[in-house]
Amino acid sequence: MPEQLAFTIEVFMNGLMAGVLYALVALGFVLIYKASGIFNYAQGVMALFAALTLVGIMEGQVPFSHLINAILGTEVHHFGWHVPAFLAIVLTMVVMIVLAYCVQRFVFRYLVGQEPIILFMATIGLAYFLEGVGDLMWGSEIKTLDVGLPQGINVWIDEFTFEATGYGFFIDNLDIVASIVAAILVIGLVMFAQYTKQGRAMRAVADDHQAALSVGVSLNFIWILVWSLAGFVALVAGIMWGAKSGVQFSLSLIALKALPVLMLGGFTSIPGAIVGGLIIGVGEKLFEFLIGAPFLGGATENWFAYMLALVFLVFRPQGLFGEKIIERV
């Protein structure tokens, strides 16, 4: 097999893996958007917050230690214990549920019925707030997250492809795990939405708030449920990205990468988020490899996704799987 083609296929595979992670973040957006019409810009910061909290709990950090030290003049840093990964994940999930409750109770309860753009701006405010709280709680230095996921090159694929084609493909174990987890998560969420009572209530709310209210669905509960689910998705995304590149501020920027994914797939469609994520992941890696790096000076990954989405939307404003936009006066 010619070298160039083999490289291209490898880039394609890595793009698919990156796309899965984009799709994972985009899923969190779709969940909240479908159920409450809120476009949650804070999703990326939620992932960062979840990852920070997970690391903090595992390391036994004292929350707000910097602030406490500054006010009281003490020198507290760590409790001195280490929590096992599984327990820490459960505890972090509890924190995310509490967060979901607070967000619903103190912010969006007061904003029901506002214009979508006002809600969107409120989530930008929420993103800033959460980012500040996360940094105050756990400190802003870059942390490594190790929950025992396998990392490094997958030797088996490398050897297998080397024997078959004469060129060993480099694929990270972590990416494979991430894809499997994402696939399980997606299937789980679809099953939840289709076959459970709460899932059905969730879809009812997404369909029509008033009608759902009138048959006895508690809007408040559903919204807290949806924000908790989004928190769970954020936690998973935070673990994957955190294990890949460390827990730091740039983690919250993946939310911005998820936006073009959503635009491609349509804001209201779960399969759309997956397909959009894969297209963006593969597209930006291939573009960088084939055109960006050789001809344009590299780092085209920063903007390619947005440009692709922009051009695409000009021809199909509702995205690939979105509902057709009908406007009336």
Partner: peptide, 22 residues
Amino acid sequence: PTDIVAHLQLVIVGGLIIIFLI
């Protein structure tokens, strides 16, 4: 320390945005 004040500033700006919108 300046970094704590910078983080507090994020919290305050974010909180103010939400309060204003509400």
